[in-house]
Amino acid sequence: MSEKLGNGDLAKNHVWVYCDLIRNIEAGPPSANSEEFIDPRHELNEARCWKAVMAQLLISLFPHDFLTGALGFNMAYESLPLPLLKTVKELRELRLNPYYFELHNSIDNANVGHAAMVMAAVANYIEVAP
């Protein structure tokens, strides 16, 4: 978690770095914690996205009831997909800052990074699960 927060360095905080990328490409979405974010003109009406958000919210509110779900979500988010490596290359070609994706390539690696940690957590859970 501390790495996701940039270990106290705002310039390495993942949310800050991602928002900086969005600002630099002038995508300009409204802040997710603003009322404007849910305005119908933005067409944020994909049911599958809202279901995923609600699932994550419920897991975070009731972690003991949804531990297996939390482990599954964490494994999915911390495992590096191949498109992430391609994204870095493509952003560089477009002269856009790929730092957000480079952070994940280094921090979420399956050898010693977050992906390795979550795989170990799942293996430990499987060993003690009833």
Rank of each mutant, 00 (worst) to 15 (best):
C49G: 14
L80Y: 01
G72V: 08
V15T: 13
L10K: 14
L71H: 04
F62V: 06
K86T: 15
G69L: 01
S60T: 02
M119Y: 11
A115H: 08
W16H: 14
K4C: 13
V88Y: 01
N13C: 12
M75C: 14
P29W: 02
E78V: 00
Y100N: 06
A70G: 12
A115W: 05
F101S: 01
D65M: 12
P81E: 15
Y99S: 00
L57G: 07
S60P: 00
M54G: 04
F73D: 06
L84G: 03
F101I: 07
V15Q: 07
Y77M: 03
E46C: 11
R41M: 09
A47K: 11
M117Q: 15
S34H: 08
F62R: 13
A11C: 10
M119R: 14
E3C: 07
R95A: 14
L5R: 15
S106R: 08
A123D: 11
V122C: 10
H64R: 13
E78D: 13
N124W: 00
G8W: 02
L103F: 09
I59G: 01
L61P: 07
M1H: 14
I25R: 06
E78T: 08
G69P: 06
K89E: 14
P130I: 05
A11L: 13
M119K: 13
V128S: 10
H42N: 09
Y18E: 06
M1C: 11
E26G: 08
N13A: 10
M75E: 12
K51E: 08
A32Y: 09
H14D: 08
F66S: 04
R41S: 09
Y125M: 05
V122R: 07
K89C: 12
S60G: 03
E36V: 05
N105Q: 14
H64V: 06
L82G: 15
G28K: 01
G6E: 06
N74C: 15
V112L: 03
E36L: 06
R41N: 00
C19D: 06
V88N: 09
K51L: 07
H104G: 00
G113F: 07
P98K: 06
H42E: 03
D20Q: 13
V122S: 03
P130Y: 03
L91E: 08
S2G: 11
V15P: 03
T68I: 05
P81V: 10
S106N: 11
F62S: 09
K4D: 02
R41Q: 12
L94P: 09
S34Y: 00
V118E: 01
W50S: 02
M117C: 14
K4I: 10
S60D: 04
R48C: 07
P63T: 00
N33K: 03
P83G: 05
V15G: 09
W16I: 08
T68G: 00
P29F: 08
L82T: 14
E93P: 04
N45W: 00
H104E: 04
H64Q: 12
S34I: 08
L57T: 10
N45L: 11
N97W: 01
R23L: 04
K86I: 15
Y77T: 04
K12S: 06
S31C: 11
I38G: 06
K86N: 15
S106Y: 09
Y100V: 04
G113H: 12
